[in-house]
Computed example of a mutant assay.
Amino acid sequence: MQLHQLEYLVAVADEGGFTRAAERLRVAQPGVSAQIRKLERELGHALLDRSGHRVRTTPVGVEVVSAARAALEAVAGVRRVVDDLDGLLRGTARAGMVSSGPFLDVPGVVADFSTAHPHVVCSLVEEGSGALLEGLRSGRLDVALVGAAGTLPEDLEVRTVSEQPLVLAVPADHPLAGLSSAGPSDLAGRDLVLPAEGNALREAVDLACAGLSPAPHVTCSASDPAVLARLASRGLGVAVLPGSVSALRSEGLATVPFEAEGVRSRLVLAWPRGDVGPAAVALREALLAAVPA
């Protein structure tokens, strides 16, 4: 049994498949599969159930993965002791982000951190808030900039980066354009253009509009707020957006403050509770230092 076999097993268990595990580990996928099969033969048990769309751990595999995590953490602890004695920062630091606009330059911070600490393997992914939160909880990510349009996640540490009012964006001749403010009931039966599924704002608006009759209809979705503003300006639906989106003005849209209980437009920096490696802590501190005052 070798440490890299345990690392491969944990990665497949976290990612739910061999391809994503190989991408995370930066190794060839056939090598991951071969090493895990070798480990299974050595232990005399199947550790992974490969029969479904997503690879899952068998009952024996659950216990072995738990022991593998402990073993890998113990080895990492030994390495940290040596690194501390050498005065060097080593290890991995894995960050995630949604599109942040001007609020926090996550790519810039990660690039500067990587340059300052050449012995740290840094990675950065851009995904929807739902996938990023799952990555933090599973251990795939160490820190992430996520959207939090509803309640803040209680199982993670968070720091607010920005908070903005929401607006309905409509053409100037739209029936809603003359309102001083609007709420979920004003969206009943209307066509909407909203962020893509998995976006925190989309989930919050869906929740706020649940139970409306007639129900609103989402005609288009996109991850870029500027695209949503453009779609709204062409009459494809009412856009629900943060008020700071610059494209609202460039597209000539009228904006109406949107008020719904528990719905906000927030960006937060989030990270798991508990112990993490020193490289992950250092990257998190670099990101926190870059949050505008």
Results as ranks from 00 to 15, higher is better:
A22H: 04
V276E: 15
D105V: 02
G128Q: 13
L228M: 02
L133P: 04
G128S: 09
S51K: 08
T92D: 00
R80Q: 13
A260S: 01
P214K: 08
P216W: 07
D84I: 02
R50T: 14
V291I: 15
A226N: 05
D142N: 14
Y8L: 05
F103Q: 10
H45E: 15
T57F: 11
E127Y: 14
P107G: 03
P165C: 04
P278I: 00
E63S: 14
A144H: 08
S213C: 01
A210E: 14
S123T: 15
S51Y: 03
C122M: 09
S129V: 06
R230G: 00
V263S: 05
A290Y: 01
S123K: 09
G235D: 09
R20W: 02
A74R: 15
P292V: 04
Q2H: 15
G183D: 03
V245L: 00
L132N: 11
E134Q: 10
E163N: 10
V167R: 02
G44S: 02
P292T: 08
L194D: 01
L288R: 15
S265P: 02
A260C: 04
R202L: 08
P292L: 12
E163I: 06
G150V: 09
L141S: 13
R90H: 11
V110Q: 06
E157I: 11
E157T: 15
A172T: 08
V82K: 08
V121L: 14
P59I: 09
A290V: 10
L236M: 09
G178E: 05
R37M: 06
F258W: 09
L288C: 11
G183C: 06
S213W: 02
G139V: 10
A232I: 01
A76F: 04
V170P: 02
V55H: 13
F103L: 11
S246T: 10
A260T: 05
G91L: 06
R234M: 03
E203K: 06
A188F: 05
L176A: 12
L152K: 03
A293K: 12
L156N: 07
G139K: 15
R137E: 08
E15M: 06
E157G: 09
A279I: 09
A21Y: 07
D14M: 14
A70F: 06
A182W: 01
A169P: 01
L88P: 02
A247G: 06
A71P: 07
V32C: 12
L85T: 05
G44T: 12
V146C: 11
P195E: 06
H174F: 04
D275N: 11
V268P: 01
A226G: 11
V263M: 10
A28T: 05
L236Y: 08
A182R: 01
A293G: 14
E7Q: 14
H217K: 15
D83A: 15
P257E: 12
S181G: 09
A282G: 11
M1C: 13
L176K: 05
V10D: 09
E251N: 08
L253A: 07
L9Q: 13
D155R: 08
A282C: 12
S233H: 01
T115I: 01
P225S: 00
L248H: 03
A28G: 14
A95Y: 12
T58V: 09
S233Y: 05
S33I: 10
A208E: 13
V218Q: 07
R190F: 02
L228E: 00
T57H: 13
A149T: 12
V276R: 15
C209W: 01
A254E: 07
G211I: 13
R37K: 15
V27R: 13
A67H: 02
V193N: 00
E259N: 04
